[in-house]
Design a binder for these strands. Structure first.
Lengths: 146, 146
DNA sequence: CCTTGACCTTCCCATGATGGGAAGCCCCAT
DNA sequence: ATGGGGCTTCCCATCATGGGAAGGTCAAGG
């Protein structure tokens, strides 16, 4: 099948399929006499694999490792699990960072009247050197002033 | 003061200060006769403002709006609050997405032995068309199979 | 058989925020 | 006056993705 069909069947855009091939994430596709790329159902399965891994937030670099393990029949499931756990770790770290941002913003927003007057603790905080950074305790309670 | 000092005082790298100036986020700095950029304490305050807003995850585009409000003495605090609430909204959305990824990965990881054997539900899921996507209910419980 | 429209190819450019590095000028202290 | 560190501009790279142009290909219908 052509790249367009493979794209539809895998959920990966034709643009990205070419990019993945160019960067070596996936092997070079077969070609027709006239130069069109051709894809087998196995190729589409691999593309779906990549797509799903992207949906789970893996970087292309990580996906290359996952694909290598996928192809390796003598793999150790421990290695796969390791990658998954590291991914969870990384996601959790980013989540925590963003939760801290949310907590700080909420803290500032509740103090803001939100009316026609100009006074606003949000701007005051951004401006001043008495910035509030709300840290999250493990219990989810907020505290701190910095 | 020179750009290096301003960078140290504001926490924004010299590279980024030039970039912000070039893209119009901040006004063009003054120059010495020989072409060096010069910064006043007011400029540094503005740079700190930008820095803090970045720390809260605002995009440069949003920060431009915040700076405009900051400079506008006739602003309505409602507009500032609006920006903050939208920012919270956006962060929450991303957090939710990542939490779903984490939930799915954890679900898959607990089913993986993590030993020397090759069998691994993580790869099986990525590969197959019986992919598990764990959706998060409002109570934090997990359910669903897709 | 030829046209038409949809598809494919490669190549270049852009995103957003950041950093690296080179070539060349400037400033200050010794 | 010399040396080292700071400044200038300019170009390139990141990461994953999309847009678009110029040109070749394929299949269906007149």
């Amino acid at each position: 099948m052509n790249i367009g069909e493979a794209a539809k069947a895998s959920g990966v855009s034709a643009k990205m399929i070419r990019y993945y091939e160019e960067t070596g994430l996936i092997p070079q596709a077969g070609r027709t006499a006239s130069g069109y790329r051709t894809y087998t159902t196995t190729d589409v399965q691999m593309l779906r694999f990549v797509r799903r891994a992207r949906d789970l937030g893996f970087t292309v670099e990580r996906i290359a490792e996952l694909l290598a393990l996928w192809r390796d029949r003598a793999r150790h499931s421990a290695d796969v699990k390791q990658l998954a756990l590291e991914q969870i770790e990384g996601l959790r770290r980013k989540i925590r960072e963003m939760e801290e941002m949310v907590a700080t913003l909420e803290h500032l927003a509740v103090g803001c009247n939100g009316d026609h007057r100009p006074d606003c603790p949000i701007l005051a905080d951004l401006e001043g050197d008495t910035s509030v950074v709300v840290k999250l305790s493990p219990t989810g309670q907020t505290f701190g002033r910095h």
